[in-house]
Design a binder for these strands. Structure first.
Lengths: 342, 342
DNA sequence: CGTAATCGGGAAAGCGCTTACCGACGTACG
DNA sequence: CGTACGTCGGTAAGCGCTTTCCCGATTACG
């Protein structure tokens, strides 16, 4: 691997000069030298060692984002938004997949700190686990105290900036729509109960139920993995324990799609016999059949906003900013009034 | 930010000793010192500077993967496979999104080289652009000559290891199925013509046509972006210019889904009036309606294999290995015999 | 013509770490 | 009791770069 010294030697200049030319330093340099150096760079196919540069310059430039799983469309969309603004700022983004293991979240914070990341963005639900939350919080605080920026998406427990989607309000929207249509026997296909996203959305649903004079009993709620197969198994359970449900509220689109698949396999018509509503409005929601009624969250935009917050110049008064993002009901074909005239 | 020197000072030892303890060097160290150092690490929340380490150790450890777009399920799946094996090997993977801009591909190779990546994995179609290909090839070769490993997925033009899916054979499978069912008026919804993936799959389709005594005329093929909206617009064009088509072969699932959406919006029944076949078998293919008949490629597995190749010990005889992966037809509901008894 | 200001370039000191290499001590042995 | 060796720590030399500081040579000016 060619080094700066090699280039300098070849061009017959000092490493200092070569460095200045290559990095376009403000210091003026004669054109003759400039050309010689540039030629040497070309001939040697020289690329500066990024680690050495980072060490010498001593200012962070990359930013890290910790997600559960990029291959999940939810995170893929957020990531896409993040990347866009990072690229605009000329920042490299390091994507870290925890595959839903909280411990990895901790590890990655450490790793990102070790790599001198300028900012860490945490996307994805927080956990209902006080000890874990405290540990994470502590690590994050240490990171901040050394000048690191932190932004979180969809979790409220941490210091640093936050972009928080209206999960509760969205849940309420779902409930209002379903009860409004006349459904009374509603099943909830929920994500893992230790995720705050699950409980937040659930809370909104409960509020809507109360407002309509109903109540969501624990047995109406089935918890499972926040993905397609979780949605399918939870739906199966629901059908078995509550044969009379006329509507299913899935707490994210992946689960809703799993629900749809299971319903279809059992020959149950949607929305004829059972209505299904999702949450998130991922791109595929409109392509399943029936097209999914869901709650739209501007995923890519949320990512972009989080990155923008994280890249902000050192906070004026150390005040973490919080941006709320609204949820919106998107009515499509998977929901309708209950068929049972009762 | 606490440094190793800080830790050493605090523990009352030399930096050398501290380093040895922290990294578990083979050199024996008294337990008393070990404890003091570890305590200091804890108190100072010390995390070694990864850049300094990499510089001092001077051996690469991260690996980079260049994809078109992680939020595209095709790449998301591949990436998932990649990550799995990278993690098993304790490697950090840097994901680079080109957003389909070939120039970015070049830039990222450079960036990865600058970051001392141990390996670069190129996923996603190659381009029919000799100049670009040569430039990329040259850059890759330089990288290899300095000890870097290279693996590509789905492109054949480069040195280094390769995992190559049976695009041609898959295209043939599509053609055989469609012509076999009795379709004669087939429209092709193709990706950009400058992508080798497009032309490879097309070639297979053409071969099948010939075998069945047909021929694919240029006008039967509409080129568009390799995504959902590209699929929709291409299908619209096809419908307008070839009102009589009874089957549409989309060259990837995203496009097929776009085609499905457009067909639905025009009230055309699938497969009743028109059959649709996709390619790739991404996870969502089974959830759209009608469920998509498609060509299955073991995406995650391909990623895993590429990573495995890339992480292999320095090649024995410098021989790039090539792994072919088979394609398989998955019959679902979107295809059937043509309705026109003619 | 002497001095000061200016300009272009190099020498060298780090950035935070790893790792030979060396040296001091203690033990085992002759 | 002297030599030899094994243990455990420390010293210091880098890794490849950036950047401060300084110095010689021009140029400008009085």
């Amino acid at each position: 691997m060619a080094t700066l010294a090699d280039v300098a030697r070849r061009a017959g200049v000092s490493p200092a000069t070569a460095s200045r030319i290559i990095n376009g330093s403000p210091k003026p340099v004669t054109d003759a030298l400039r050309e010689r150096v540039l030629a040497a760079v070309e001939e040697l196919q020289y690329v500066p060692n990024a680690h050495a540069q980072q060490l010498a310059r001593n200012h962070r430039s990359a930013v890290g984002v910790i997600v559960h799983d990029v291959s999940d469309p939810y995170f893929a969309e957020i990531t896409r938004g993040l990347q866009r603004v990072a690229t605009e700022h000329g920042r490299l983004v390091i994507i870290c997949n925890t595959y839903r293991d909280p411990d990895k979240e901790l590890e990655y914070v450490e790793l990102l700190r070790a790599n001198q990341a300028a900012a860490i963005i945490l996307a994805g639900s927080g956990y209902h686990d006080e000890q874990f939350t405290n540990t994470l919080d502590a690590k994050l605080r240490v990171y901040q105290s050394t000048g690191g920026h932190v932004a979180v998406i969809g979790r409220h427990e941490h210091s640093g900036h936050a972009v928080i989607p209206a999960n509760e309000a969205g849940g309420h929207l779902v409930g209002a729509e379903l009860y409004g249509l006349g459904h009374t026997r509603i099943g909830v296909v929920a994500g893992p109960r230790h995720l705050t996203t699950t409980t937040d959305r659930l809370a909104g649903l409960r509020r809507a139920a109360r407002e309509h004079g109903h109540k969501l009993t624990p047995r109406q709620i089935v918890y499972a993995d926040f993905d397609r197969s979780g949605g399918a198994t939870a739906t199966a359970t629901l059908l078995d324990t509550h044969p009379g449900v006329t509507a299913i509220a899935a707490l994210n689109d992946s689960m809703a799609i799993g629900a749809l698949a299971l319903l279809r396999s059992r020959g149950i018509d949607v929305p004829g016999q059972i209505s299904v509503v999702g949450f998130d409005d991922m791109p595929i929601a409109q392509d399943v059949t029936p097209a999914l009624t869901t709650i739209r969250l501007p995923l890519a935009d949320m990512g972009a906003r989080a990155m923008t917050l994280a890249l902000q110049p050192p906070e004026p008064l150390n005040t973490p900013q919080i941006e709320h993002v609204a949820a919106e009901l998107v009515r499509r074909e998977s929901s309708g009034p209950p068929s049972d005239a009762r």
